[in-house]
Amino acid sequence: MINFENVSKYALNNVSIHIPKGEIVGLIGASGAGKTTMIKLSCGLLAPESGRVYTLDKNPVLNRKLYKNNISTFIAGVPLLCHDDTVSQGFELIRNMYGIEKTEFHKRYEKLSEQLDFGKYESQSVKNLSLGQRMRAELGAALIYEPKLLLLDEPNVGLDENGKSVLCEILTERCKNGMTVLMTSHDMSGVSKMCGRIALLDGGKLVFYGSEDNLRSRYAPIDVMRVKICGNIPDFEDLPLKKYFVQGDILTLSYNSNHITSAEILKLILRQTSVSEVSIRKPSLESIISQLKKGGYYELY
């Protein structure tokens, strides 16, 4: 869908990435890492300084007209709906612009307005809406013409928890039908929930690109297991544990999940004693990213 070949532009430095069809790719990284630049390069709003960008197999800068019905770009802070219009007027204008047939459009509108819940203020003008309300309507506007490629720049800004999970549902559903999404976000739990792949930018370089599990096993393989034991404290001498400590009847173990699975540890414990409660904590995407930023997890490798 999108192909970057050794692209440099602003902060971005020699980035190559391929975004396959039907995938939701989350672009993460600190502010100024080049996330928005990547979005703008993908839709042809920016031209690369060096290297090449292909979107739908074409140079997006030169073929912008061709894309207009295939790509939907949503950049937070850049309005899709006119300020003076009411929400439904804004949508009617979009229908007109994209030449979508009326009954079909109505069907899509009904569905989106129910999902994103902007139907109840459709007769209010956009400028009177709260940030979250406006974001819901604008996301609807970005989705309604059913683009093949959706580029989202921080779509979660201003959305409440319900809005975030609805967006996640819609995108997941759309991607099953072949839509591709490239999105930037600072909402790690959202990214973790919906993105099949994560692209991590740091200082203009693509430091990681792959699934979340992949990221975890590479940069944050340390899992923490808490076991409530009834009986003797088991002996772990042979196991490659990072560390363990005992507090009353609670045993806390941390270990590298690349070297040993939790099942193996548990099996060993159960052989020696009995257990009443087990919980395993893997590091959240958020903590991995913040640790990565500090350079904490790098030392493992």
């Binding site: 709003l45 007209k65 207009k68 790509i71 770009t73 309005p79 899709l80 612009m97």
Partner: peptide, 12 residues
């Protein structure tokens, strides 16, 4: 206000 960006990506 930067909305020139979306205007250029519109099909008109």
């Amino acid at each position: 206000d930067g909305s020139i960006a979306t205007e250029l990506l519109r099909p008109i």
